[in-house]
Design a binder for these strands. Structure first.
Lengths: 256, 256
DNA sequence: CGCAGAATTGACGATCGTCAAGGGCTGTGG
DNA sequence: CCACAGCCCTTGACGATCGTCAATTCTGCG
C-alpha cells in the first residue's frame, strides 16, 4: 500500500509501540457493523482501506451519522479509558482495518511520550471536526450544509488519494448524507439536483466533480482550518499506515 | 468553596502537577470573552464559579453554541498541542476561573501518568457530550431538543450544587438556548410555554422546576449515560476544585 | 421611576419533511 | 446473455414545523 504522509513530522519509530500492540488486519464487507453501541469492542481500529460511518440510532429508528471515517482514520481511542461504545460504526464500503488492543489502558501514554502526544493531537482534531458538524447542522440551511459537507469530504479524500484536484470518490448514498446533515434523503437529492443544474457539481456513479469549487466555497463560507491540515502531526495513523503489514501484524481474514 | 467530588477515585496529589502550573485565579464579568476565536489564549481554564458558553460565529453573525460550561469544567485542553482557538468562550454569568499554563506542551503527560490518564478521560467525556449534541440537533424536533437539553442541564447542575432534586438554576437566556439547539429564541419560547401549560416545568426567574421529570424523559427518550457520570474520574477538575486557593495560585482580580 | 434586556404573543411565509410513484443501475442467477 | 430483484435516485404534490417580522408586556436594576 502506498505510504501516506501529510505534514507529519515524527518518525515511524514513534508509532511503533502502537503497531506492536496485539492486533490483526481484517477484511470487512460493506454493511458490517465494526462496533455496536452498548458493546465493548475491546480494541481500537485503524482504517487501511474503505469508508465507514459512525452513527447513533434513536429508539424509533432515526439515525444520526456523527462522522465519516476514511483511510488513515483511527477510531475508538476511548478504548484507552473504558468502556462501552456509545455509537455504532458501520462499513459503507468493503474495508480493511487493523485492530490494536492496548495491554493496559494508557500504557502507551506512560512509556511513550511522543506517541501519547500524537494521540492527544488526534483527539483534539477529532473534536474540532465534531464541533464543525454541530455548527453546520445547527446554523446552516440545507444548501449550505451540503456544500460544506462536499468540500470537507473532498479535502479529506484528497489526502488519502481518493480524488484528484477537482473530483473525488464519494461512496455514500444520499440517505447517509441526509442522516449526517439532519436532512431527508429526498431533500438532499433536491439540493444536489439544484447544484447540478447550476453547474456547481457533476456526478457519475460515485465520482463527484466539483465544477465550481469557488462557487461552493462562497455558498457556504467554507473555512477548512478546522481540519487542521496545516498543524503538527496531521494524523497519527498516516504515519502508521503502510507499515502495519511489513511484519508486525499478521494478516487475518476471519470475521471480527 | 465547597469541595466537590463525584465518583472520583484518585487523590488530589495526582492533580497537583496541574495545580502547580503557573496560573492565577481571575474574576470575570458576565459578557466577557474568555477566549476569542483565532487567538491563542496560551493557557487552559478551570471554571470555579459561574457559567460560560463555547460558541462559533458564522461570518453573517449567526451563532452556534457548542457547549455550556459550568463549575468544575476544564476547557481549552487543546493548549497542550497548539494553537489558535477555533471558537469563542463567553461568560454568561459573573465567573471565577483558574488559569493554568503548561511550561511545555504535554509535559504533564510525560511525567505524571495518572494525571495524563485523567486528562484523557476528560477529553473522551467531552467528546461524548459533543456527539450527543449532534444527535440532538440533527434528528430531534424542537420539543425533544428542549426537553433533552433541560434534562442534561439539570443533571449537570445537580453535580455542581446548582440545583436540588427537581429544580435547578439555569442562567441562560432563551436566545442562548436557541443558539445551542439550532432554533430561534422565539420558537424556544413557544415550546417552553407549551411545557408550562402541560405542567411539565415551572419557571420563576432563572430557577427551573421539573414538575414532571418522567414526562420530559418520555418525551425525548432521554438516556443520560452519555454524560458518563458512573464512570472513572468523573471530571478531573472536580478533584482539583477547592484546592486551588489553598496556597497554590495567588488570587488575582485584574482582567485577563 | 425609567431604562434595557428578556420574555411573550400573533400573523404570515419559507424551508424542509412526508407520501407516493416511477426510473435507472448493478449484481446475480438461470 | 437476458431477466429479475433490490437498492438507489428522481420527481411531484401537499403539509407541518419552524423562522421572520412586529408589537407588547414583564423583570431586574440603576
Amino acid at each position: 500500500m502506498k505510504r501516506l504522509r501529510y505534514y507529519c513530522d515524527f518518525d515511524d519509530d514513534i508509532a511503533r509501540p502502537l503497531l506492536d500492540l496485539p492486533g490483526r488486519t481484517v477484511d470487512v464487507a460493506r454493511g458490517t457493523d465494526l462496533v455496536v453501541a452498548g458493546e465493548n469492542p475491546g480494541h481500537g481500529f485503524i482504517v487501511e482501506t474503505g469508508w465507514a460511518i459512525r452513527c447513533t440510532y434513536l429508539s424509533d429508528g432515526r439515525r444520526q451519522v456523527l462522522n465519516v471515517l476514511m483511510p488513515g482514520d483511527i477510531f475508538d481511542l476511548q478504548v484507552f479509558v473504558s468502556g462501552e461504545a456509545d455509537h455504532t460504526v458501520t462499513a459503507v464500503t468493503d474495508m480493511t482495518v487493523k485492530t490494536f488492543r492496548p495491554d493496559h489502558p494508557l500504557a502507551l501514554f506512560h512509556s511513550h511520550g511522543k506517541l501519547g502526544q500524537a494521540l492527544w493531537w488526534t483527539a483534539v482534531q477529532e473534536e474540532a471536526i465534531l464541533r464543525e458538524q454541530i455548527v453546520r447542522n445547527g446554523r446552516r440551511n440545507a444548501s449550505e450544509r451540503i456544500a460544506h459537507f462536499l468540500l470537507e469530504m473532498h479535502r479529506r479524500a484528497l489526502i488519502v488519494n481518493e480524488g484528484d484536484g477537482a473530483g473525488f470518490r464519494l461512496p455514500l448514498t444520499q440517505s447517509v448524507i441526509g442522516d449526517a446533515l439532519g436532512l431527508t434523503a429526498i431533500h438532499v437529492n433536491r439540493i444536489l439536483m439544484k447544484f447540478r443544474d447550476r453547474q456547481l457539481i457533476a456526478r457519475s456513479g460515485q465520482w463527484i466533480e466539483l465544477l465550481d469549487r469557488d462557487g461552493l466555497v462562497a455558498l457556504c463560507d467554507f473555512d477548512p482550518s478546522y481540519l487542521r491540515l496545516d498543524s503538527f502531526p496531521r494524523r497519527l495513523s498516516l504515519a502508521v499506515q503502510g507499515n502495519g503489514s511489513k511484519g508486525n501484524g499478521q494478516t487475518d481474514r476471519s470475521p471480527l
